[in-house]
């Protein structure tokens, strides 16, 4: 299958313009015979929305979202937006659309609220992590910070995912030698988790700046052996395309059957014990 990552530059808070940009990138992807197109986190809105979050929130049934979902007739599209729920909670969500229909929505579970990040101030926390079936196989979505918790790719791998989609907005900071600090950490993380879970990971990061903060791009595709198959340029817009062979999931798992050997009962037992201990500690302190 041919996957495409739309490493682009959204305009902060301009839903209409970003919608048009999405349509352009979808056209470009079609011309490149892309079958699955992944956009970055919050691709319809931009990242540091602050109070704009309230203005750009949209229901999954809204005109803008429906318009984009309808474009998934000939290729699957995965994009990010501020989801306004029926009970008026805003979520940092990513939607998977195929054949003109919504297949899955993931609400970001881990909202970074420290240092330069302030997501917890505006967004409600997602409470569900699920893999879901697609025409290409079982997939899972983790949005940026979600991927920085080892429990999340673990759960998706256990839940049957053969591919994890990771839309991100990762900023350039702490410039050590040769690479942006957060960037080298990202690749190490992606490569490890892909190999440990025996699955593909697609990391789509945006470019552009918001109030002096640069997003570095460098989107990447990692195979189930933990090897980087393709990487996009730094700081530049780019449609990163790659042909990937999903049968590599089978071959890598035959070679290194980590998933087969995983002891789910042990994990659950120990986690239950740890949770119980924490509850008891809370009671007495």
């Amino acid at each position: 299958m041919r996957v495409g990552l739309a490493q682009f530059r959204p305009t902060l808070g301009d839903l209409q313009r970003n919608l048009d940009l999405h349509l352009d990138w979808i056209e470009k992807a079609k011309q490149n015979q892309v079958e699955l197109l992944l956009f970055p986190e919050l691709s319809l809105t931009g990242y540091s929305l602050l109070d704009l979050t309230y203005d750009v929130g949209r229901s999954v049934y809204s005109e803008e979202i429906s318009k984009l979902v309808a474009r998934s007739e000939s290729l699957d599209i995965v994009f990010g937006f501020v989801e306004l729920s029926e009970d008026h909670v805003l979520y940092n969500s990513t939607l998977y659309a195929s054949k003109g229909k919504i297949v899955h929505i993931h609400r970001k579970v881990y909202l970074p609220t420290y240092g330069m990040f302030d997501e917890g101030r505006y967004f409600g926390r997602g409470e569900v992590l699920r893999s879901f079936p697609t025409q290409f196989g079982q997939m899972g979505i983790l949005i940026c910070e979600d991927m920085w918790h080892s429990s999340t790719p673990y759960l998706l791998a256990q839940d049957g995912a053969q591919m994890i989609l990771v839309p991100s907005n990762s900023p350039a900071r702490s410039l050590d030698q040769n690479e942006v600090g957060s960037q080298s950490f990202w690749y190490a993380n992606l490569e490890n988790q892909a190999a440990l879970g025996g699955l593909f990971i697609l990391f789509c990061n945006r470019v552009g700046t918001e109030d002096g903060v640069s997003f570095y791009g460098g989107s990447a595709i990692v195979n189930p052996y933990g090897d980087e198959v393709a990487r996009a340029n730094r700081l530049e817009e780019q449609l990163l395309c790659a042909d990937i062979d999903l049968d590599e999931v089978r071959r890598s798992r035959f070679e290194t059957p980590l998933l087969r050997d995983e002891n789910l009962d042990l994990t659950i037992r120990e986690l239950t014990r740890i949770r119980q201990r924490r509850l008891e500690q809370k009671r007495w302190t």
Binding site: L175, G212, Y216, R234
Partner: peptide
């Protein structure tokens, strides 16, 4: 600093902003 990288990032961000 990684000087080429720092200059690359600062130049790109300055232009864009």
């Amino acid at each position: 600093l990684d000087a080429p990288l720092a200059v690359e990032i600062l130049t790109a961000a300055l232009k864009e902003e």
